[in-house]
Design a protein around this nucleic acid. Structure first.
Length: 195
DNA sequence: TATACGATCACCT
DNA sequence: GGTGATCGTATAC
C-alpha cells in the first residue's frame, strides 16, 4: 500500500528565488537567483482509492480537474480547497484506476538557522499548511514526480533505515469525509508517530 | 449563468 | 466547541 510506504520518505522541493543584489537595486531590477532545497519527511498520508471511493474526487467520474488521477502513477495532483489552500497528492495505481495519496503531514529539519537550534524540527500537520510551506501550487499540478526538478520523492538516507525506526504507524479514519457513506470510516489514513 | 459547498486553517470563546 | 475567510468546481437551472 503506497500511502503506508510513503511514510518516512522525503518529499523534496526545489525553489529558486530571485533576490535583489542590494536594496538599492530592488528598483533597478538587478537580481540573482538563490536555490533552496526543502526536504520534508512524510509523517501523515491518506489513501484515496479507486472509482468507488466516495471520498475521492474521482468517484464522480473523469473531469478536467480529476483526469490526472486516471493517468499514470507518479504524477502530482494538486488542487485548491476552500478557496485558499492547496492539497498535494501523489497519483498511484494503474491507468484508469483513479487513486492518489494525499500528503497531510511532514517534518522539516530546519537547517536555515545557523549555530543555534540546528536540529530543530518543524512539524507540519495539515495539507494546506504543508503546501504553503513547500510553495506547492497549481503550477505543480500534473507533473511527473519521477522526472521533475521542482518536486520529487526520495528514500531516506541508508543510515535511517526506512526512516521508521523508533516510530509507530497508526491507522485511522480519514479527515473531513463524513459524506462518503460506507467509505467514510475506512482506515485509510496513516500517521507516523513516536513510540 | 447561478448557486452551493469543500480531502482547511486561524482565531475566537 | 464554533465560525469566517474565500474561490474553483460540480451541479442545477
Amino acid at each position: 500500500m503506497v500511502a503506508k510506504d510513503l511514510l518516512g520518505k522525503y518529499v523534496v522541493r526545489r525553489v529558486v528565488e530571485n533576490r535583489p543584489t542590494s536594496s538599492k537595486n530592488k528598483k533597478a531590477g538587478f537580481h540573482y537567483p538563490v536555490e533552496k532545497i526543502i526536504r520534508a519527511k512524510i509523517t501523515e498520508t491518506e489513501a484515496y482509492h479507486g472509482p468507488k471511493d466516495l471520498a475521492s474526487h474521482a468517484s464522480r467520474g473523469k473531469t478536467s480537474r480529476t483526469e490526472v488521477m486516471f493517468g499514470r502513477a507518479g504524477r502530482s495532483y494538486v488542487y485548491l480547497i476552500y478557496g485558499m489552500y492547496h492539497c498535494f497528492n501523489i497519483v498511484t495505481d494503474k491507468e484508469n484506476f483513479p487513486s492518489a495519496v494525499l500528503i497531510r503531514g511532514v517534518e522539516i529539519k530546519n537547517l536555515k538557522i545557523k549555530n543555534k537550534n540546528d536540529n530543530l524540527k518543524l512539524k507540519i500537520n495539515g495539507p494546506g499548511k504543508l503546501c504553503r510551506e513547500l510553495k506547492i501550487n497549481k503550477e505543480l499540478n500534473n507533473i511527473d514526480l519521477t522526472k521533475s526538478r521542482e518536486l520529487w520523492v526520495e528514500d531516506p538516507a541508508p543510515q535511517e533505515g526506512r526512516g521508521k525506526s523508533g516510530y509507530l504507524i497508526r491507522r485511522m479514519p480519514r479527515i473531513g469525509v463524513d459524506y462518503a457513506k460506507e467509505y467514510k470510516d475506512k482506515k485509510w489514513r496513516f500517521v507516523l508517530t513516536s513510540k
